[in-house]
Each structure stands twice: as C-alpha cells, then as structure tokens.
Amino acid sequence: MRPTEPVGIAAAGLWLPEGRSLASDAVAAGRLRERAAEDLGHESLPDADVTAPPDAAVHAAHLALDAAGEPAERLAVLAHAWMYHQGHDLWSPAHYVARRLGAPRALPVGVQQVCNGGAAALGFVTAWLATANSAEASRPRLGLVTTADRFAEPGFDRWASDYGVAYGDGGTAVVLRRPAAPGDALLLRSVATYADPELEEMHRGTDPFMPAARDLRERVDMRATKRAWLRVNGVEPFTTANERAIRTVMAEALADAGMTASDPRLSHVVLPRFGAKTLTESWLPVLAQCVDAQLLDFGRATGHLGAGDALAGLADLVRRGLPAPGHAALVFSAGAGFTWSCLLVESPRR
C-alpha cells in the first residue's frame, strides 16, 4: 500500500514496565533449559506484574501524543491491536483506550492479527485517514495506533510457551497525521503485507476446537501445536514460506516507495523482536542477501512484544534519531497465521 500523499508519523511511544523477569530464574525453576536460554539471547524481559494490558497502551499513547503536541480530543480514529488476553471477556479494549485518553470523537477499532497486529492496525489507520471527506480536507486528520500485551502466568509462560521466541510486556503507540506536517518525526512511505493461510495450522496443530480459552490445557502451549504440525510437514514448508514472504514484502515496500534494495537512501533495517537464534537462522541470511543497510536488533532487552514489534521499532528509530534526514528504513513484523509486514519510513529533510 502506497499512500497517495505522505502520511506523517508525528510521534511514537514505547512504554515498558520497570519489573523484569530473569532468564536465570526460569532456568533455575526448570521452566527453561539453559541451552534454550542461550539461543533466545535475553538476560531478562519486561514484566508488567499487575498492569492491565490496555493501561500499557494508554501509557504509551500519552507519551506519543505529548511528543506530537496533539490532544486526544483531535483523534479521528484509534486502532488497538493485541496478541494475548486483555483482561476481560467479550469486551473492547480499543474503546477502553479511547475513553481513558479522552478521545470521544475517535472511532475505536480492535485489530486481532496476533503478532502482526500492530503493523496491520497501522495499515488500517493509514487507509482510513485517506478517506477524509471534503468538509475535513482543509485540516490534518489524526489517527492513533496502539498495542499492548501482558504475558501473565499461569496461563502464559513468557519463556517457554513458544519455540525461539520469548515474550516481553509493554505498550506501544504511534500518532499518524495526514497530510504530514513539517515537524513530523518520520514519513510513512509504504506498507507491504503478505499472508500465507496454509500455515494457520502451526498454531492449531491437532487440537480440537474448544468451547472456552485454555479448556484443553492450563497454559498456552504453542510448542505443542508446532510439534504436531512439524511431525506431518517437516520444517521445509515454513522455511520456504518465510523466506518468500520476507523477500516479497521488502520488494513491495521498496517498489511502492519508488526505491530499490540498492538505493543509497536505504540505511537501516529493523528486525522483528525474536530470539537470537531464530533471527540468525531465518532472517539475517535472507536480508543480508538483499540489502546493504545496517540491520538493527532492538529486541535483546525487550523480547517479542506481542502485537507491538513494528510500532516499538518505530519508537526506537525516533528515539535514536534514525535514519538520518533524507534516508529511509525498513521495519519488519511477522505473526501467526502467518502474516508478514514491512513498513518503509523516511526521515524528512529539515
């Protein structure tokens, strides 16, 4: 998707709790093998303890709105994405975030695309902002994208519920402005997404459909469903699909922005926040063949932030002043289903 005019990323916020969950504690408790801890490459992960997930989104949203210098009352649309339980059944966390922020005019929308939810929500808000009617066309429209997840025990073990990925708690937020304003931190040039529904069974396995959450097991166990899928299919179908998807979304994002992989303006690539071994084996070799840009791994201190990897990547770019004015960066995201996304952002010349 290529916006018809530049969409400004006015600001991006990342909220992480002060609490930490230690890998060494998980190993000592027998929840995590020492070799697996080494493969993950995280000494600790953010642990929100008692913070409700949507409140983490509210915290991040306040950071982003304050940095953008915009009041919540001006928001026209708010999309909230998540991976894991938000605290209530049959309830809309997006409406809660809008209410807590004081955004009565915003349309609250929930986006449930698992780990790729943040990127999907950003694409939705970008497209929604492009539908401004004539009465509103004379002033910029504002949209907010938030994510939040808290991977709380006993239903979820952040260290051992999955292979190759460990999960950190936190909230993210991005303020989008159309048209872009001179002071915006970044410009969103394109959003590319690719899906392969043939892989949905990796997170279903041979389990029967259940009438309620965790009716079959007391804890979310993605390892069990993946083992069941791998016994039938082996690793090759996913390896092939993952490489194809990475190349596809990267090529589409670059083409929509009028760039190529060798464009000297492309200076950085932000990786998803997966375990070190997963990145080394499944992502770095593919990207190293395609681009000369610097590969950035911001996930060692956070782990995988559920739906928030892409938005957290934007927040980290802004905080570090990257890329340099006139240069661009790719931000990757991927999640169960499977779906992959790639955002291309540019730092405006001041």
Rank of each mutant, 00 (worst) to 15 (best):
85 H>A: 13
76 A>I: 09
97 V>H: 01
77 V>S: 08
89 D>A: 13
74 R>P: 13
82 W>Y: 12
79 A>I: 05
86 Q>S: 01
68 A>D: 03
73 E>Q: 08
77 V>H: 14
71 P>C: 12
92 S>C: 07
74 R>S: 11
77 V>G: 01
76 A>G: 15
68 A>R: 07
87 G>E: 07
92 S>R: 14
99 R>D: 03
96 Y>P: 00
75 L>H: 06
91 W>F: 15
84 Y>R: 12
97 V>Q: 00
94 A>V: 03
93 P>E: 03
76 A>H: 15
90 L>I: 09
77 V>E: 11
93 P>N: 09
73 E>S: 13
87 G>R: 15
73 E>G: 14
80 H>C: 01
97 V>F: 00
77 V>Y: 08
74 R>E: 09
94 A>H: 05
95 H>W: 00
78 L>C: 11
89 D>Y: 13
81 A>N: 09
69 G>I: 05
79 A>E: 12
79 A>S: 13
98 A>P: 12
73 E>A: 14
99 R>M: 03
98 A>V: 02
101 L>F: 00
78 L>I: 10
72 A>E: 07
78 L>W: 08
79 A>T: 06
94 A>G: 08
101 L>G: 09
84 Y>W: 05
86 Q>T: 02
75 L>N: 06
70 E>F: 05
87 G>L: 11
72 A>R: 11
89 D>S: 13
101 L>T: 09
91 W>I: 10
98 A>H: 03
68 A>I: 02
82 W>C: 05
72 A>N: 10
99 R>L: 01
78 L>S: 10
84 Y>I: 02
76 A>P: 14
70 E>I: 12
91 W>V: 14
69 G>Q: 07
96 Y>W: 01
85 H>N: 12
88 H>D: 10
88 H>V: 07
95 H>I: 01
95 H>Q: 09
92 S>L: 12
95 H>V: 00
99 R>Q: 12
97 V>M: 01
90 L>E: 04
68 A>Q: 13
71 P>D: 15
81 A>D: 00
100 R>V: 05
76 A>L: 09
75 L>K: 14
85 H>D: 12
69 G>Y: 08
84 Y>C: 04
93 P>A: 09
85 H>Y: 15
78 L>R: 06
80 H>I: 05
99 R>Y: 01
93 P>L: 03
68 A>G: 06
74 R>Y: 04
78 L>V: 10
86 Q>E: 00
82 W>L: 05
72 A>L: 09
83 M>G: 11
